[in-house]
């Protein structure tokens, strides 16, 4: 739900402020790739209505966000591709593909794609955090958006702890990816919490 909330928060921000300054479209592009790699089983595996519905929502909303930021005025007029410049193609996609192949539990396309999507998701926030560091001042709704993006994976970790003790569920790849992903947020969370605590605007060092 936190993940869904972060997407809805971003959609609301784009519609309300009609601007995507401070928002990284490259991060959304990474997430679109993550979802496409991971949700291929939509075509051949039915787990539950909830599971299928959420996969469709995540894929469609992410592509819609990209469309808004890249091609739909007035939002796209405020998008600066030179500022949002983290070269994720070689820095993130490459290593995720290699790691996905090496660490896949079995060398089948779905498993390799799933594993690569876990590694890619764990670092997909980087373009967003780097863009915010350049801008330093973080607008309120953007701060909430990034905070929920960091929080959702932390709640997966809590669920993984529960599932390990309740049903012996083991998911080494997911666990490691989740720890990396949450770890990348820790310093943002610190500044976000401080800005909330002291009631000041969020400014990154």
């Amino acid at each position: 739900m936190l993940h869904l909330m972060s997407i809805l928060l971003l959609l609301w921000k784009l519609k309300k402020s009609k601007s995507c300054v401070g928002i990284s479209c490259r991060m959304q592009e990474c997430y679109a790739i993550v979802f496409c790699l991971r949700y291929l089983d939509l075509f051949y595996q039915f787990i539950s209505v909830y599971n299928t519905a959420m996969k469709v929502v995540f894929i469609s909303s992410t592509f819609y966000l990209i469309f808004l930021m890249r091609f739909q005025p007035p939002v796209s007029a405020t998008y600066d591709r030179t500022a949002d410049s983290f070269p994720y193609e070689q820095y993130l996609l490459g290593p995720a593909a290699v790691l996905g192949f090496i660490s896949a539990e079995e060398w089948s396309i779905p498993e390799i794609f799933w594993t690569a999507s876990i590694w890619l998701e764990s670092v997909s926030i980087l373009p967003q955090l780097i863009l915010l560091q350049q801008l330093r001042e973080v607008e309120n709704l953007t701060a909430e958006f990034v905070a929920t993006m960091g929080a959702y994976r932390f709640f997966y970790i809590l669920n993984w702890i529960y599932r390990y003790f309740a049903e012996g569920y083991v998911n080494w790849i997911g666990w490691l990816g989740g720890i990396v992903q949450t770890g990348l947020y820790v310093d943002f969370f610190y500044y976000y919490a401080m800005s909330k605590w002291y009631g000041q605007k969020l400014v990154l060092p």
Partner: peptide
């Protein structure tokens, strides 16, 4: 069916 490990998480 049990041989295919389905990823049941999003």
């Amino acid at each position: 069916e049990e041989d295919y490990k389905a990823h049941d998480e999003l």
